[in-house]
């Protein structure tokens, strides 16, 4: 099997950096859609480390896991967008700060 010259640590670092970018996006941005995209970045960061672990440790569970993550992410997207559309019908905005009927 092909053994890459890029060490595992690099993949893990990439994944960690992407994950942190995702967290920062969720915490900093106020646009619902962008926050939503940042969450997807977090999930994909996880996928990178799952696949990297699999490749370097000769395992196989992680690949199945990453497929599950993708499936669930797709289901989550459909529900999430539906919620955003329902919300948009009642209040035409995507700014998180304007959703303040309930105290945060």
């Amino acid at each position: 099997m092909f053994e890459g010259t890029v060490p595992l640590a690099h993949y893990l670092t990439l994944s960690a950096v992407l994950f942190v970018i995702g967290i920062a996006g969720v915490l900093v941005r106020r646009n619902v859609i962008v926050v939503f995209m940042s969450i997807e970045i977090m999930l994909n960061a996880v996928n990178i480390s799952l696949i990297a672990f699999d490749h370097y440790l000769n395992l196989s569970n992680g690949q199945i896991f990453s497929f599950m993550v993708m499936c669930v992410a797709a289901a989550e997207v459909s529900v999430g967008l539906a919620i955003i559309i329902a919300l948009h019908r009642n209040k035409p905005t995507v700014n998180l700060d304007e959703f303040n009927l309930l105290k945060w």
Binding site: V26, I83, L87
Partner: peptide, 12 residues
């Protein structure tokens, strides 16, 4: 709108 907002917050 209140129920919508609850769903959005829960979801995010």
């Amino acid at each position: 709108p209140v129920s919508n907002e609850a769903a959005l917050k829960y979801f995010l």
